[in-house]
Design a protein around this nucleic acid. Structure first.
Lengths: 138, 138
DNA sequence: CATAGTATCTATAGCGACTAGAGGTTCAAG
DNA sequence: CTTGAACCTCTAGTCGCTATAGATACTATG
């Protein structure tokens, strides 16, 4: 049996976050000691590790809730779980596309200031002020 | 002179967002009509366009505040502005790196479920449950 | 000029996923 | 048995909005 601090150390999830997960229903309320302190077992540790891992991969709390529910109903869970993961993947890819566009634009803006010429007007500032100067939509 | 709705239409920034920008100090409080409604001039429009553009590029409210302040003090503002933009760029790049790692991992996880073999255990779920299965840190 | 319908006003609360703090209780070591 | 770390609950704050409620103002038509 682990205390909440011990669980925190093992999963690298902060103590208040563990309690937060309990309030939102991601973790089921564990046993308590006489003195009202939480005591977790191995199953609790595994569940929190699962959550931690999924959060690291950017899954929302809601998506993780769904995944956990699927774990408890193993019949035809695989397709549903794969769907959730695939949605997450396409979400990640959309974010990458967007960030790459931003990267390009920011590179252009910051490069404009370099080196030669009198910089009466700061290129960064004028670029931001005038959308017409952009090479692409964003 | 534009009403807040007119300004919203021209900048594509929603009306409550414009008011929000005013409360946090990004926009200076504009003139008011007799009946207490906001009326913006061309300068207000330009400032909001600047903000919109910077937000689109992912600059935080705080960073935009700094940039606006720099606009008002043109002496040696360029270096400072470029620094802010460069910080933003490296932030964007860090996010891209991280998302690419996630993409790879998610791809691996979702692919594992495909096709052949009896799927007694869902690969998505077991992958998330066991960090050891990951190919890289994330 | 009256009225209808839209736009605007303020103030407050909610979103997601935590994080920080106050003020109090319990546990484990010496 | 005492100390001090860890724990408890509760509330509020973070960021950048977004939504709602209830009241007031503007504008177009009859």
């Amino acid at each position: 049996m682990f205390s909440i601090g011990e669980l925190s150390r093992r999963t690298k999830v902060k103590v208040p976050t563990i309690r937060y997960y309990e309030t939102v229903g991601l973790l089921t309320a564990p046993e308590r000691t006489e003195g009202n302190q939480r005591r977790y077992d191995r199953a609790g540790l595994q569940r929190l590790s699962f959550i931690r891992h999924a959060r690291d991969l950017g899954f929302s709390i809601e998506a993780i809730s769904s995944l956990i529910e699927l774990q408890d109903h193993p019949d035809r869970s695989c397709q549903a779980a794969t769907d959730i993961a695939a949605a997450q993947l396409s979400d990640v890819r959309a974010k990458i596309r967007r960030l790459r566009a931003l990267e390009k634009e920011l590179l252009r803006i910051t490069k404009g200031c370099d080196g030669e010429g009198v910089s009466e007007d700061c290129y960064v500032l004028t670029s931001l002020a005038d959308h017409e100067l952009c090479e692409r939509e964003h």
